[in-house]
Amino acid sequence: MNRLPIIPTFLVALAVATMIGLGIWQLQRKEEKDTLLSRYESAVGLPAVAWPKVPDPAALPLFRRSSLLCAHVVKIETVSGSNAAGKAGFAHVASCRTDTGEGPDAKVAFGWSERPQSPVWGGGAVQGIIAPDGAQLIKLVSTDAVDGLDILAEPSPSQIPNNHLLYAIQWFIFAAAATIIYILALRKRSKVL
Rank of each mutant, 00 (worst) to 15 (best):
R29E: 04
H72S: 07
G111L: 03
I130Q: 00
R65A: 12
F110S: 05
P116M: 08
S156E: 10
D56R: 03
P47G: 13
L137M: 10
P52M: 03
A94I: 00
A85M: 09
G111K: 04
P161N: 12
L68V: 15
W51Y: 12
V93C: 04
V74F: 04
P116R: 13
P119I: 12
C96T: 02
G89I: 08
Q159Y: 08
N162G: 06
A59W: 02
S67N: 04
R97H: 09
W51P: 00
G89R: 08
H164F: 14
S95D: 10
N162Q: 06
K87I: 11
G128S: 09
V120S: 11
K33Q: 12
P57K: 03
A43I: 03
H72D: 07
L69S: 08
I130C: 02
Q127I: 06
V44N: 05
V79D: 10
A135N: 13
V49Q: 01
V146T: 15
W51Q: 04
R64K: 15
P104N: 12
K30T: 02
A91I: 12
I76C: 05
L137E: 01
P52C: 08
P52T: 00
V120W: 11
W112S: 01
S95A: 10
N162S: 09
Q117S: 07
E32S: 14
T143K: 05
S38W: 11
N162A: 12
S95P: 01
I129D: 00
I138K: 06
K87C: 01
S158D: 06
G148C: 08
S95Y: 05
T100Q: 15
K87W: 03
P161H: 15
Q136N: 11
E41M: 13
K33L: 06
A145M: 13
G124L: 13
K87S: 02
V120F: 14
T78R: 02
R64D: 01
R115H: 09
A125G: 11
A135S: 12
G81M: 14
V79L: 10
A43L: 05
A59D: 11
S82V: 09
K33P: 02
A168P: 00
I151W: 15
S82L: 05
F90E: 09
S67G: 15
L165T: 00
R29L: 11
T100G: 12
V49A: 11
Q127A: 14
Q159P: 08
G111Q: 07
K33H: 07
E102Q: 10
G81T: 15
K87Y: 02
V54R: 06
S67M: 11
L140G: 03
I151F: 05
L62F: 02
T100L: 14
C96D: 04
S95W: 06
E41G: 07
P47R: 10
L68H: 06
R97P: 06
N83M: 11
L166V: 02
V126Q: 04
L149A: 05
L46E: 06
P61D: 03
V54N: 12
P55A: 13
V141D: 01
S113M: 14
K139V: 06
L36Y: 00
A85K: 14
K107V: 02
D99S: 07
N162E: 09
A58D: 02
D147V: 10
V146S: 04
A109D: 03
D144L: 05
R97I: 14
E31M: 14
A71H: 05
V141K: 04
I138T: 04
L46I: 06
N163I: 01
